[in-house]
Design a binder for these strands. Structure first.
Length: 278
DNA sequence: GGGTACCTGAAA
DNA sequence: TTTCAGGTACCC
């Protein structure tokens, strides 16, 4: 569950639960994660838990049960397509299917589950190495002017949908919210990113803020199916206007929602509401 | 830029 | 059996 609102939700939910807990150990079950070392984190204590782009970051402080270097370490998790982080208040956790690694913490366990195994986990000394190049769309610096400058600065002939998925301009948008944002902004996903007018850029900017904050307020989108009592479950799927709604009536004009493929990925849009010169 | 690869599972 | 899936790294 891995676009910005889902990652933000996970970080917000884990932060108060994990804060202050000592790290006891790590068990790696997937050879792809074999570079993780239990020794590097045992004896530390979880500090802040935050979102950085689409990544979940745990600050690991010194001050646990063992003497370690005073500088913090950073556990950086990218969930990619199917990764989840689950808290289990049991030091002997029942590991769900597709558990790839788990950390023993005081009073419980943090379990990393990832069926497709695209997810990544790294332990860093320097958080800057994980900082994305793109601008966080929820940061105060994300103004209409900044967005306009980003749109004008290269990649300008790219279709708008593809541009929104680039993580080196804005970080955090993915396939669901790119479609939803363009619907909210009434912009055709095939428009050239560098050729929007100022009013259109202002609409796009407002739509990004509105869609992301609404999604966060609903704890993100969960295509449940695999429900897990300990998993984060959002409800924004009930508010999606176009994503995975091909053929259903547009909630604004009742024309059927359409699907098109851009970069081998589905884009959903309303051909009547999202018009504009291409 | 676009295509392909990395993985696994669910649904058509 | 084939297609599709919330992401991104790497190839020309």
């Amino acid at each position: 569950m891995p676009e910005l609102p889902e990652v933000e939700t996970i970080a917000r939910q884990l932060a108060p639960v994990l804060h202050g807990r000592g790290v006891l150990g790590l068990t790696v079950l997937d050879p792809r994660l074999a570079s993780l070392s239990a020794r590097a984190l045992a004896g530390r204590r979880v500090g802040a838990v935050q979102r950085l782009g689409k990544q979940v970051v745990l600050r690991l402080e010194a001050g646990g049960t063992r003497r370690v270097a005073a500088a913090p370490r950073w556990l950086v998790v990218h969930l990619r397509m199917t990764g989840r982080l689950l808290w289990q208040p049991d030091p002997q956790p029942t590991l769900p299917r597709h558990t790839r690694a788990w950390w023993g913490l005081e009073g419980g366990a943090l379990v990393f589950v990832d069926p497709r195994r695209f997810g990544t986990v790294a332990l860093l000394e320097d958080l800057e190495r994980a900082r994305p190049r793109g601008l966080d769309p929820l940061a105060p610096e994300h103004s209409v002017e900044r967005l306009a400058a980003l749109l004008a600065g290269g990649g300008g002939r790219q279709p708008l949908k593809a541009w929104l998925l680039r993580q080196d301009r804005l970080v955090g948008l993915g396939n669901i919210y790119a479609s939803e944002i363009l619907f909210a902004a009434r912009l055709d996903p095939r428009r050239e990113a560098g050729r929007l007018g100022h009013a259109e850029i202002a609409r796009l900017h407002a739509a990004i803020a509105q869609v992301l904050s609404a999604a966060i307020a609903h704890c993100g989108t969960t295509f449940s199916d695999f429900q897990d009592a300990h998993g984060v479950t959002g409800s924004y799927q009930d508010y999606l206007r176009v994503y995975q709604r091909e053929g259903l009536p547009c909630s604004r004009c009742a024309a059927p929602v359409r699907r098109l493929v851009q970069q081998q990925r589905s884009t959903f849009y309303c051909a009547r509401c999202q018009r504009g010169a291409r």
